[in-house]
């Protein structure tokens, strides 16, 4: 009811990460029945005016992942308002500002990229929900040649794993072939962006470059929604994107054809946003 005191959240914290800023706060005690927390944000500012125009999300959780911020460092100011079961609103929390981290997709030079780093997987084969056709379409996994093949037919939106019965409960290998005119002089980075992954068993994949095993890539748990929808930028999306960027050892790449191989031999599927190699 209007005029009643509704508790303001405390303990607002922020952590800038690749492509996102993670906010969390201390939930109000249970004796306040919370309808939702309203999170307000404004770019490139030290504070934000609480208004419908700056509302970023309504969430029942004491946490908000401000995602799909892209590869550049983005700075935002935030405030959080508690809305209770009667529709009454608290005073806004104190403001807090934070920045996301810059991505190698912004600072590096692309040498081989499949897809767009845009929070969407819609450009890929079988997207957004054609996983049941994966076994027939990609019986031997993906073998994609940059400059020749098209993402819409050559790169599956999902890479299954051995936990996926619909994909035969086996490992699945994706190969990315690309040509270099010369061995790269700078540091090479791999940038993998996912729009989502399996929530509880995203698993891992073995990364191999030109026949040399580099490492095992472990994926973040997502929301198990990316098998059915492909756009993590839709307001209210439940997709949970994740970002994996790392330098690769020197000397792996050579003039002529290079092959990067991902063998998904643990866990369930991942849903692609983009994959690429960048020289920094």
């Amino acid at each position: 009811m209007s005029g009643r005191h509704v508790r303001t959240v405390t303990g607002l914290r922020a952590e800038g990460q690749l492509g996102r800023i993670v906010l969390d706060w201390t939930p109000v005690p249970w004796d306040t029945v919370v309808d939702h927390y309203a999170v307000y944000g404004a770019p490139d500012a030290a504070d934000v005016e609480v208004s419908p125009a700056t509302l970023l999300t309504k969430t029942v959780y004491p946490r908000f992942v401000h995602g799909s911020l892209g590869g550049n460092a983005r700075r935002f100011a935030y405030r959080v308002v508690t809305v209770d079961a009667a529709g009454a609103r608290s005073r806004p929390s104190a403001p807090l500002a934070a920045s996301s981290q810059v991505s190698v997709t912004s600072t590096g030079s692309p040498l081989a990229v499949v897809g767009r780093y845009d929070g969407k997987g819609l450009e890929f084969a079988l997207s957004p929900n054609g996983y049941s056709r994966y076994p027939a379409t990609f019986p031997n996994g993906v073998d994609f040649r940059v400059g020749t093949d098209a993402p819409g037919t050559g790169w599956s939106y999902l890479q299954p794993g051995p936990a996926d019965s619909w994909a035969g409960r086996r490992t699945h290998t994706f190969r990315l072939r690309f040509d270099l005119t010369a061995a790269p002089a700078g540091e090479m980075w791999l940038a993998i962006w996912l729009i989502d992954s399996h929530a509880t068993i995203p698993g891992s994949a073995v990364l191999d470059v030109n026949g040399t095993t580099v490492d095992r890539l472990r994926f973040e748990g997502g929301a198990t929604r990316g098998s059915l929808e492909g756009d993590a930028t839709v307001p209210g999306t439940r997709l949970r994107p994740s970002y994996l960027e790392r330098p690769l050892p020197a000397g792996l790449f050579r003039p002529g054809e290079n092959v990067l191989t991902l063998v998904k031999d643990e866990g369930s599927w991942i849903a692609w946003d983009a994959i690429g190699l960048f020289e920094v």
Partner: peptide, 20 residues
């Protein structure tokens, strides 16, 4: 426990509004 990656610590907040 959620099947969709929501931690138990957070999931109880969804349960609270669902039950309400």
């Amino acid at each position: 426990g959620s099947r969709y990656g929501v931690s138990p610590e957070h999931f109880v907040h969804l349960r609270a509004v669902g039950y309400r």
